[in-house]
């Protein structure tokens, strides 16, 4: 079987990066970045997600089919968020007669 086995060093470095990012996201929350607070927090969360998925969940060694299924799944999540928010953010842009 062609199984990739990563070194302990790789996993330890990923853990270190995850812990550092946790500290960063906690500390940066106390800095006034205005609207960008959310952006920074989510950007760090996405980085952490990628580290866990690519290394701990072995996505970088997984089959093309698994990667495709994963991207397809994330696409549905984007549809869920985008369509719902496109409704809620645009309500009130135009007046509705009788309301």
């Amino acid at each position: 079987m062609t199984e990739h086995i990563d070194s302990i060093r790789t996993y330890a470095l990923v853990l270190l990066a995850l812990l550092v990012l946790t500290a960063v996201t906690t500390l940066v929350a106390f800095v006034d970045l205005g609207e960008f607070s959310v952006v920074v927090a989510l950007a760090i969360a996405v980085c952490k997600m990628l580290l866990v998925a690519l290394f701990f969940m072995h996505v970088r060694h997984s089959t093309k089919l698994t990667k495709l299924v994963l991207l397809g799944g994330l696409l549905w999540l984007v549809i869920l968020l985008m369509l719902t928010l496109s409704d809620f953010t645009t309500r009130g842009w135009i007046g509705v007669p009788g309301r």
Binding site: T22, T25, T26, A29, F30, V31, D32, L33, S37, A41, L42, I44, A45, K48, M49, V52, A53, F56, M57
Partner: peptide, 25 residues
């Protein structure tokens, strides 16, 4: 392992979204 890491990823998003909103105010 995949399941355990997935649950970890959910928390990775829950932590900033629930705990870290507008802490600077």
């Amino acid at each position: 392992g995949l399941y355990w890491h997935f649950v970890d990823i959910i928390w990775i998003f829950l932590f900033p979204l629930l705990y870290l909103i507008d802490r600077h105010l």
